[in-house]
Structures are given as structure tokens and as C-alpha cells.
Write a protein that binds this DNA or RNA. Sequence first.
DNA 1: CAGGATCCGATCCGATACTG
DNA 2: CAGTATCGGATCGGATCCTG
Lengths: 138, 138
Amino acid sequence: MSVGHTTVTTPPLVESCGDGEDRCGIREVLDRIGDKWSVMVVVELAQGVRRFRELQRAINGISQRMLTLTVRRLERDGLVTRTVYPTVPPQVEYELTPMGHSLTHLVKALADWSAGHHEAIAESRRRWDAANPGSHVR
Amino acid sequence: MSVGHTTVTTPPLVESCGDGEDRCGIREVLDRIGDKWSVMVVVELAQGVRRFRELQRAINGISQRMLTLTVRRLERDGLVTRTVYPTVPPQVEYELTPMGHSLTHLVKALADWSAGHHEAIAESRRRWDAANPGSHVR
DNA sequence: CAGGATCCGATCCGATACTG
DNA sequence: CAGTATCGGATCGGATCCTG
């Protein structure tokens, strides 16, 4: 029990964060899955092997360019394999690696937290926006 | 066991993702904590109440402007409370709300996954970059 | 101390056109 | 089908100056 005037402080969430060098490595993940499309690709590939066009059709709104960039970066990071079959027309299959699959647990946790709080967040935003009309924040 | 020529497909990771409307709500979280500084602020505030300058000193490299914007958005979403003491000079304290604290679990999971895979990712990148010299990806 | 306002370069991303 | 290449608008974020 903390008594008296001492400041209540919980132990660090992670070793050393907040430094510009990202020692805790969180930024590294966020730079990969924090972008606009990576999570969607991971979610889709979590259901099985997919071809390029299949991915594009499944992920509403993604452009050809962004899908290419996204799967390439996921491949570079070892989260996705890219298999080219020398047929005509060409056929390319994408699949999660074991590391990619381990990431789906995190994505699931993300989705669960979202589902559990997005209503409270929306409500908070409504109140804040009503209390701060014409704010540049948002 | 799946036998024969049927495609192996695992059940959906989340209900309905991949649509432009983000029904699974993942984007909502990512739009908040996926930016450059929010996670760092949450990590710092997970340790206790902080004043504006304390946050800025703790988070290496963050500009005044971005700290302001970041805490304002966190406040708007109901993850952080902002308490102004009408003293001179002014004193403003930031603190995680219960919802903000619940988010730290997710951040912890993020940090753990990062720590467990960042070496494998770095290695994968080295190999990919060596195999794809002069690529525009990255 | 805790910001608000402004300027401006960097990056992201969509649209479009072209290719093996 | 599965890309690559290029252009341009929008957004992000840093630097700087100013204020109660």
C-alpha cells in the first residue's frame, strides 16, 4: 500500500522506451503493421494461401500498387512467403510464415480490444468534439 | 485432417475484415496507436501521472507540437485525462484512464512480440536486401 | 510551464499508364 | 495475371516564433 505523499508509480511497462532509438522495439512492429493495409493482408492470409488478385479482391479499396508494396514488405520481414509458378498467365501465391502466423495472435488481440472499446471511444469523441468546437485536433 | 485437393482454409481471424469500412474496427485502434508517438506516451503514462514537460523529457525526440497533438487525441478518445491546475506557472497533468490502462496490456503484448521476433526480422531483412539489390521496396 | 500558430519539407498513398 | 513506373494530392511531422 502506498501511504503518504509519495507519488504512486507503477513499474515500467517495458524496459527502456521513450528513447529515440526504440530500444523496446515497439516501433519496429508498428512500422510494419501500423500502416494502412498490412493488417488487412495478414488477416486475409490467416485464412489460407492467396493469389495476388484474390488478395486484391478480398481487401476492399486497396490499389494494385499498395498491395504490391505491402506484400513485398511483409515478405522482406519474413512474415509472408511469395511463391511464383512459371505458368502463363503467371501465378503467384502468398502465405504466412510461422512468424506471420504468430503475428495473427497479436492482430486478434488488437481486434478484440477494438471491439470491446470502439463504442466507448466513439462516445468519448462525441463528447470531446461537443466540448471543443472548432478544434484543430482530430 | 484435410485430405485431397480441397484448399486448406482456417476460419476467419476476425468476423469481417478487408472491407473498406473496417467492420472489425482494427483500423480505429491502429489509427490511434499506430502513429509515431502515441505508444510512447502511453508507455510513459503507464508508469504514473506526468506533466507536459515531464512527458517531453521522457520521450526522446518528440516535438512540442507533436506531444500536444498526441495527448489531445488520446484525451479525445478517452484514453487519457488532462487536468489543468490554475497555478502560475500553469501545471497540467496527464494520466491514463481505466480504458487507457487496459490498452497497456495490448502495448505489452506488442512489445513482447517485438522483442521475441525483432532479431529474426532483422535477419530476414538482411537476406532479402542482399537478394534484391536496388529494390524500391523498404 | 504549457501550449497555439505558421511554414515547409518528407512521406504516404491513389490514379493512371505500360509490360512480360 | 501480376506486376513496374511515374505523377500528384493529401497528410504527417519537425522547426520556429509567439503568448498567457
